[in-house]
Amino acid sequence: MLKSYCVCHLQASSLPNVALLGTASQSSTYPFSPASNVIDGNRNPDLKAGSCSHTKYGPDHWWRLVLPHMYNITHINITNRISNAGRINGAQILIGNSLQNNGNNNPRCSVITSIPAGGTSTFNCGGMIGRVINVKHYSTNPNVFLTMCELEAYGG
């Protein structure tokens, strides 16, 4: 039975970053840039500092976070790289409970139009309930990467 938790009475700043509790993976891994870097609690936007993820070339890029429980996700913060900031443009944030198709069949929270180089943007998810959070790039261009430096998921 699914349990639903209302966090409506809580201020966004009082909600925990549940991303720190999860396990991250991604479609492929460029050397020294694993998926786990995105949930290390470090927003450093310099890939060379070791706190960013980076996929290899290819047309089907995704990054996935599996949480230990279902959460009511109010918002997601994503920190972008300083260099090659456009690599995240057009990606979608998905939240749900399915691991089917690597978690990419879950409902959409938001589309990442762009995030400034080295900046952090907030995406409102309106209390979507789930334990799987994906960032999926739908580009068919085989010469594209997906990179991020931090993902924070706030909820209860």
Rank of each mutant, 00 (worst) to 15 (best):
L47K: 10
C52Y: 05
A35F: 07
T113L: 00
I133V: 14
I115W: 07
I133F: 03
V66Q: 14
R87A: 03
L67A: 05
P142R: 06
N102H: 12
N106W: 08
S25M: 12
I133R: 05
G119L: 04
D60G: 02
V18D: 09
R131F: 02
T55D: 07
L10P: 06
N97M: 08
P31Y: 11
S33G: 10
N17A: 12
N84R: 02
I82Q: 09
V18P: 10
T29R: 13
H75E: 05
V38T: 14
H137Q: 11
V38P: 06
G130S: 04
A117M: 03
G156M: 10
A49R: 10
A24N: 08
M70C: 12
L65R: 06
R108T: 13
R87G: 14
K48T: 14
N80W: 07
N37Q: 09
L21Q: 15
S36I: 05
V111R: 10
N77M: 09
R108W: 04
N102C: 02
K3C: 09
L151A: 13
T55S: 12
G41L: 05
F32A: 15
T23H: 13
L146G: 05
V135G: 07
H54Y: 02
S110R: 05
K48E: 14
H69T: 07
L21E: 15
S53R: 04
I115R: 08
Q100M: 06
V7K: 12
D40P: 11
V18A: 08
Q100N: 10
P31W: 13
K136E: 03
W63E: 06
G58D: 12
K56Y: 00
P68T: 11
P45W: 07
I115F: 03
